[in-house]
Computed example of a mutant assay.
Amino acid sequence: MTNSLEQLYQQIILDHARARHGAGLQEHRGEGVVGESHQLNPVCGDEITLRAVVRNGGVHSVSWEGAGCAISMASASVLTDLSVGLPRDEVIELVDNFRDVMRSRGRLEADEEVLGDAAAFSGVSRYPARVKCAMLAWVALEESLLAANH
């Protein structure tokens, strides 16, 4: 990866760590099915509770509250932007794609066309201790969507 691309990716992560899209657990009012998941990374103490509302087969809303490092908080922010408005099954595919990139230890380059700003986390895959930070919100989203499906 080029230095300028790495710098851009770092800036995306920092921007999302500060802005935290979707932060603040929203009460569900209205139509749709709610799924919720609480995840904790005991190694570093990162923690998130994520709530997803599925309506008409699509992800209507994602909200979360959490505490942790810039990577875990930015990852939650990015996945909120990516998933809202997409069909539930497409979001599950995004989670699988992101997981594949994170498990690759740097061998698999993220496709920006598929993952959007989540591609910024590609470099994290080279640091196994940080992969769990990046994955925390994605696992919570996956569990929330599975819970909302029942």
Rank of each mutant, 00 (worst) to 15 (best):
S61K: 00
S77F: 02
A23R: 13
V43N: 09
G45N: 05
L86I: 01
H60T: 02
D117A: 06
E90N: 10
Q10V: 07
K132G: 11
S125A: 07
V101Y: 12
R51H: 05
A134V: 09
S144L: 00
V101H: 09
V84H: 09
E142A: 12
L146N: 12
A17V: 08
V78A: 15
V59P: 01
V131Q: 08
V84A: 05
L115I: 07
D15C: 06
A118Q: 09
M1C: 07
E143L: 01
G30S: 09
G45D: 08
S37M: 06
R55Q: 15
Y9A: 01
A76Q: 03
N97R: 15
T49L: 09
E143G: 01
Q7K: 15
Y127S: 14
V139A: 14
G22E: 02
L108H: 12
I13E: 10
H60L: 07
G24W: 01
R29Y: 09
V114L: 12
Q7M: 14
V54G: 01
L136T: 08
S122Q: 14
N56A: 15
Q26G: 05
E112Y: 09
M73A: 03
T2E: 12
E6W: 14
S77V: 01
L5D: 06
R20P: 04
A74Q: 08
N149C: 11
S4Y: 12
L25G: 03
D89P: 00
V78N: 04
V62W: 01
V43K: 10
G24V: 03
I48Y: 02
Q7F: 11
S37D: 11
C44W: 00
E27P: 13
G22M: 04
E36H: 06
G32A: 00
G30T: 10
N41I: 00
L25Y: 02
V91L: 03
R126I: 06
D96L: 06
A140Y: 05
A19Y: 08
E47F: 03
H21F: 13
L115Y: 09
E47A: 01
V78K: 03
N41D: 12
V114D: 08
P87Q: 04
L50E: 05
P42K: 07
A74D: 05
G68E: 00
Q26K: 04
G66Q: 05
E31D: 14
E113L: 13
Y9Q: 06
D81K: 06
Q11H: 15
S37H: 10
G68W: 00
N3T: 15
A148Q: 05
A140M: 02
C69N: 07
G57E: 13
S63L: 14
D117H: 03
A148D: 11
Q10D: 15
R99L: 11
S125D: 00
L14S: 13
R55E: 13
L40M: 08
H60Q: 13
S61I: 01
D96T: 07
H21Q: 11
E113C: 02
F98Q: 02
V78G: 09
R29W: 09
V91M: 02
